[in-house]
Nucleic acid binder design. Structure first.
Length: 561
RNA sequence: GCGCUUGUAGCUCAGUCGGAUAGAGCGAAUGCCUUCUAAGCAUUAGGUCGCAGGUUCGAUUCCUGCCAGGCGCACCA
């Protein structure tokens, strides 16, 4: 566990020192819950820095630097430095305490990485969460488009990050297999099959023609059915084919779901009635004008929402509310919804469902909004798709740039900002294409290690001599490797998997610089030394962390490029 | 009109919990391969962090107002 890490030792040493200062009555302050440690941007400021003295200065009525001096004195007098692996403590600027680790303490992370291997960076920070992660949830009436693709990548990465952080995660795809749109879908396929005009508000993509052909081929009798029966038959068969197509595409994209949840199933076995009873028991259901409403305005929604329309049919919102009840009854204590920006108006009402069900909307439900994705090629925005008529599909994107580039690019931006994908850039094999930049660092290390093996240089935990790694680049690299668990923790806690991608880029950059300045393997006919071995071991640890980071994004870490 | 969201270098964008001199890639200029993958590295140039207030020892970060872009406001799904 990273709780035993150098960072944690430093934190507890400072807390200990501060506690003694307070106990001695030298300072009038309360011990903060946690000692905040920053990683200074400037390497001259040491490995870690804390602004605790600045924060305590006011209440203690002392100058910040005076507070810092008391803490540092306490650290020294109570012999807390060596125990925490600290080699140097300095007070700087307005009162920062800068801390430099000793070599053994700093390099310990290399050994930790190699022994934990794939598990390095994982933790149990979120072990109390049982998460239902719902994403993509496309209508099964057509191919997946760019918006779905963003979620397919980010949702999957978030699932991996949450799991790494110790949460129990179930990925769910909600299938809107009920209602008007499905009927229009059936009617559209049937119209094409019969050589008729499609309904104007129906589906007009070319894929409808493919579906019609395929269905007629195996079910020619559908053509003879009455309109109502025909629409049903084409709808149900077409839906199955389309869903299978979506599943195949997602599978190929490396995004897998634990549950494909059918909206229709919410109305089987009286589940809807049961969920309605549950909401009623909380007192937020009422009937007006012949319709059944949920009083979502009790919880910040603009207006109340209809569940059962006055004609007795179910509004879409009925499904939403029953679906939430279902998630909670299946034992999830955190329901995460990933919605497209065009649905952000739903945030209020969905959160209100949770409140109406007697839950705490701050605790049990979270909604992430994904902004639009544009795609550029040849300097122009792509808008047309052959298959879907007007939209670019997930499949087409993958055909253009490949799974790794597509996934990585979609994940590396925060989801709440609109993004532009430049196809030309993603096909480039240079610095400006971050996927390759990171993957290249990994492949480069693998090449170095292959060569090391050929030269008979042995490396690894057993022959690791960390005291040889004193170069500035080495220290920088090791320091960044040690940050990985923190990055995973942060990404999981604020649900931002893109942080892992940015970290991977930074790590790749630091490795490239190390590689440039620190020769790993012996030159020419030099004899190999223990330094070669130590650097190879450091390289091995770096490859492990890059690979772990890429794994959290669902992107491959190639050994050769 | 109301709500959500964005505004950081010429371009595309990073920058949880407020901290020291605001970062990266591209683009521009100049260097580094007879030996580990140059799909790489280095140096230089480039900024009123949209504007104006407020809170604070300290604000790109938090609060308010304004300006500008994007999106949404159904007994549709």
């Amino acid at each position: 566990m990273s709780e035993s890490s150098a960072q944690a030792l430093v934190q507890s040493a400072i807390a200990d020192a501060l506690k003694r200062v307070i106990a001695a009555g030298e300072i009038n302050a309360q011990l903060p819950k946690a000692i905040k440690l920053d990683r200074p941007k400037n390497r001259e400021h040491g490995d870690y820095a804390t602004s605790i003295a600045l924060a305590l200065a006011k209440s203690s009525d002392l100058a910040p630097r005076a507070v810092a001096e008391l803490i540092v004195k306490s650290l020294i007098d109570n012999d807390l430095l060596s125990k925490a692996g600290i080699s140097k403590v300095e007070i700087a600027g307005p009162g920062f305490i800068n801390i430099t680790l000793n070599n053994a303490s700093q390099t310990a992370v290399v050994i930790e990485i190699l022994s934990k291997a794939k598990k390095f960076g994982h933790g149990n920070w979120l072990s109390d969460k049982k998460v239902n992660l719902e994403f993509v949830s496309a209508n099964p009436t057509g191919p997946l488009h760019l918006g779905h693709t963003r979620w397919a990548a980010v949702g999957d990465a978030l699932g991996r990050v949450l799991s790494a952080a110790g949460a129990e995660v179930s990925r769910e795809f909600y299938i809107n297999d009920r209602g008007n749109q499905m009927d229009l879908f059936g009617a559209s396929i049937r119209a094409v099959a019969l050589g008729q005009e499609r309904p104007t508000d129906g589906y007009h993509g070319e894929y409808i023609i493919d579906l019609a052909n395929e269905i007629v081929k195996s079910n020619p009798e559908f053509l003879k059915l009455s309109e109502a029966d025909g629409v049903n038959a084409f709808r149900d068969t077409g839906y199955k084919l389309q869903l299978k197509q979506q599943q195949g595409v997602l599978d190929n994209f490396g995004t897998h779901f634990d549950t494909w949840f059918s909206e229709k199933s919410l109305y089987e076995n009286d589940f809807f009635t049961h969920s309605l009873e549950k909401l009623k028991s909380q007192g937020h259901v009422y009937e007006t004008d012949g319709a059944v409403w949920l009083r979502t305005s009790d919880f910040g929604d603009d207006k109340d929402r209809v569940m059962i329309k006055s004609d007795g049919s179910f509004a879409y919102f009925a499904s939403d509310s029953a679906y939430y009840v279902s998630k909670r009854e299946r034992g999830f204590n955190l329901c995460i919804y990933m919605l497209g920006a065009d649905h952000h108006g739903y945030v209020g009402r969905i959160k209100a469902i949770a409140a109406c069900a007697g839950d705490d909307p701050k605790l049990n439900i979270e909604i992430l909004i994904g902004q639009m994705v544009k795609i550029m090629e040849g300097g122009e925005e792509l808008k047309l798709s052959k298959r879907a008529g007007t939209i670019i599909t997930l499949e087409e994107l993958v055909e253009k740039v490949g799974v790794d580039a597509a996934r990585y690019t979609l994940i590396r931006y925060p989801t709440d900002t609109p993004m532009v994908m430049d196809v030309d850039l993603l096909r480039k094999n240079t610095n400006e294409n971050p996927v390759y930049y990171v993957q290249y660092a990994h492949a480069r290390i693998c090449a170095v290690l292959r060569n090391a093996k050929d030269l008979g240089i042995s490396y690894g935990v057993n022959q690791f001599k960390p005291e040889l790694l004193v170069h500035e680049r080495e220290r920088e690299l090791i320091g960044l490797l040690a940050e990985f668990p923190r990055v995973v923790q942060g990404a999981a806690q604020i649900r931002e998997p893109h942080r892992v991608a940015r970290y991977a880029e930074e790590l790749a950059g630091v490795y490239h610089r190390f590689y440039n300045d620190c020769r790993v393997l012996p030159l020419g006919d030099e004899k190999s030394s223990e330094l070669n071995s130590a650097r190879a071991t450091l390289s091995l640890a770096t490859a492990q962390v890059i690979s772990n980071a890429l794994d959290l994004l669902g992107v491959s870490a190639p050994e050769k490029m």
